[in-house]
Design a protein around this nucleic acid. Structure first.
Lengths: 218, 218
DNA sequence: CCGCATCCGCGTTGATACTG
DNA sequence: CAGTATCAACGCGGATGCGG
């Protein structure tokens, strides 16, 4: 009955009271990419039970992190979206996401991990350094086995999305999930991946060099 | 037997595979303040069972986040310390700690929450903005019902600790936990708290003004 | 179908007792 | 002090069912 909390007057403990339970932070991650309906979330979170997802969404809504809205015109049902507080939370999770990239190269548990190109949106946001993007105006496209994600950088402002980029790309990087993860966490240099035939880079070489600066794995 | 993971090739999911379980992030928080022995951790985490704490420490050690060391000279036993990777993790948790401050004013669950002055060290780190600290050279002391925490700011560099400050303080703020939490999350202005008799501020008024800039609740 | 509530078996957790 | 052993209680995963 009584929801379990740490009961400590500390920002981190209080944050974890809300997002520390299983699945909750990943729900916020998925909603940070775009609004989704219940079944979209369920599909992106394999293993979560419907009852648990329902309960998590109620807590997040009660905490003012997500909002339920009727889905736009042609569709039916409900869309869950992040509130401003929810977007702040998603931003606060980015450093943790970036830290976790360093663990990805530690060795994949048992070969088969799920992959979705949309997670790349989160990765790009977590790697983006506005200070290094001053004066940069580029559009990058990442093609992961046919699924495409784009990022535009305009002077410290980052926009990301899935599918067709809003303007012609200055660089297109095509590769597989594992190689992209290795590049993202700094374990593999893109040039080396290209040399090994595990990736292809097209477009302006200067732009691809800038992309490494702007999304620095450090 | 098989440790439960999300099985997703995503930095956030991988990070949560390690620190997403109950207590783990709070263990890292406590070790970020100073090295501790097993029973220190247990005392600061009321409710955790010894078996669970033991298992968590083994996982953190296996992941290269903490190190076991024999305790220094006069003492016996073991000290747990953060490795460099562990300190990076602690840094990555600071934005989440800061976000959680905003929840503290939402209403305390049921009156009685635990409080420890050392958590203030974490709060100060999470609020610190190096960019706003350029040119600032101050020493602040926070007195929470007799327990004292200090912070020195020197041109973008923050040091924190418990007990006596390394140099004479430029400002001393004395108050109770609840009021300090309210100030930290920006819900209460320090001047207002002083006017209400819930806090006292001594020292250089200019320094106390700077402290609000440097530890901006934004 | 979509959103959700309910139920059940099992893994995880909390608390205590015990050991080197 | 630093854990291991044990067991009850709770949270989670999966299946089923029900109204819109």
């Amino acid at each position: 009955m009584t929801r379990r909390t740490y009961g400590q007057l500390c920002g981190l403990a209080r944050a974890l009271d809300l997002v520390g339970e299983r699945w909750t932070a990943l729900i916020v991650r998925d909603l940070a990419v775009r609004p989704r309906r219940f079944t979209d979330l369920q599909e992106g979170l394999p293993g979560i039970g419907t009852g648990l997802l329902s309960e998590r969404m109620q807590h997040l809504e009660a905490a003012g992190v997500v909002e339920r809205r009727p889905a736009p015109r042609p569709e039916r049902g409900v869309h869950y979206t992040l509130t401003e507080r929810g977007r702040d939370l998603a931003d606060a999770l980015m450093p943790l996401a970036r830290w976790g990239l360093g663990l990805l190269s530690d060795g994949e548990p048992d070969g088969e991990e799920a992959y979705r190109a949309e997670w790349l949106v989160v990765t790009l946001r977590s790697l983006f350094d506005p200070a290094r993007a001053a004066g940069v105006h580029d559009c990058y496209v990442f093609d992961v086995m046919g699924e495409r994600v784009w990022a535009t950088v305009d002077d410290g402002e980052l926009s990301t999305g899935e599918g067709d980029p809003p303007r012609p790309p200055d660089m297109v990087l095509a590769t597989d999930p594992a190689t992209l993860a290795a590049i993202g966490c700094g374990a593999v240099d893109p040039a080396a991946a290209v040399a090994e035939g595990r990736a292809t880079v097209t477009g302006d070489p200067a732009a691809s060099a800038r992309s490494l600066e702007v999304f620095a794995a450090r």
